[in-house]
Write a protein that binds this DNA or RNA. Structure first.
Lengths: 153, 153
DNA sequence: CCGAGTCGGTTGCGAGCGCAACTATTTGTG
DNA sequence: CACAAATAGTTGCGCTCGCAACCGACTCGG
């Protein structure tokens, strides 16, 4: 078989891992976003800010952006909206007057404590379709790829 | 320990699988999108259309939307742009005059045959960080989740 | 056949996002 | 100390996308 008559290489999108990962991540997001939106009126950036600030009180927008890997403008707008809804509060930092400390308000904490169990439960439901070994193998794969792409924290 | 004094459940975003999947899919996409854009001037929707139409000549926009899981307007716009660049051609279907058959043009095929090996090579590079067993386990996990969420085809 | 409902595909519009530019502050260097 | 460069955060702008509405074509029951 000569080079000229070699069959064209083909690419089946349905078997192409980058595509499948995107589709999967999207499916999982939809699975959750419905809850955030309908029940709490949060979009994804806002939910991520809530989760981050809820876990680490008194952090900066900077910190949120770094740990969620969202663009700083996206974070800025999410925070502004959450502040308008009085779910978070901001205080100017004492040692750096550019930065502002972000924390959950009382009602923000209330929402957070409702939100977390629901999110964890949905994650558990999702992962329940994998057996223990399958789950472990899957997570190892994710972890290795994260390190390879330098995505971890 | 009473219910009142139970520690608040917390949620570490960095350990939350839906978030990690999103971040990973995004990282992988970036890894590829640079090539599509800089070398071929394609954005992601356009690249997906090229891949789909390259693998199955004479399909409809409908078919592309279904197999890429993109919204039909996104497909419509991607096709329009590709047609303007003369990478694909459209012919009105004989049996249904609403639908139009989509196929790669000569230059479209040329681009496709350049594109495919590069994409497959990048996928291989990405997956090369996983050992054979790790890769197998990872793919099984993806597959199971796809079925669970009914994402396959 | 003829009208209602469906289906393939396109388009107007508003929302969300990233880029680049900006303000205000801090840090580093000669 | 002064001035340049870096940093925290915000905002104007243009682009992309999804929703809903729409157009033309098909279909199926009466």
């Amino acid at each position: 078989m000569t080079a000229r008559s070699m069959p064209e290489q083909t690419l089946e999108l349905a078997a192409f891992v980058p595509f499948r990962l995107n589709r999967l991540a999207d499916g999982v997001s939809q699975h959750l976003a419905v809850v955030y939106r309908k029940r709490f009126g949060l979009d994804i950036p806002q939910w991520r800010v809530m989760a981050t600030v809820g876990a680490k009180q008194d952090c900066t927008a900077q910190y949120v952006a770094a740990s969620t890997r969202m663009h700083k403008t996206r974070v800025s707008r999410a925070i502004a909206e959450l502040e308008a809804r009085q779910l978070i509060e901001r205080a100017s930092s004492s040692d750096d007057r550019r930065a502002r400390q972000v924390r959950l308000s009382r009602s923000g904490r209330r929402m957070y404590s409702e939100l977390v169990p629901i999110a964890l439960e949905r994650e558990a439901t999702l992962l329940s379709c994998l057996g223990p070994d399958q789950l472990a193998g899957f997570l190892v794969g994710i972890e290795t790829l994260e390190r390879f792409l330098r995505l971890e924290d």
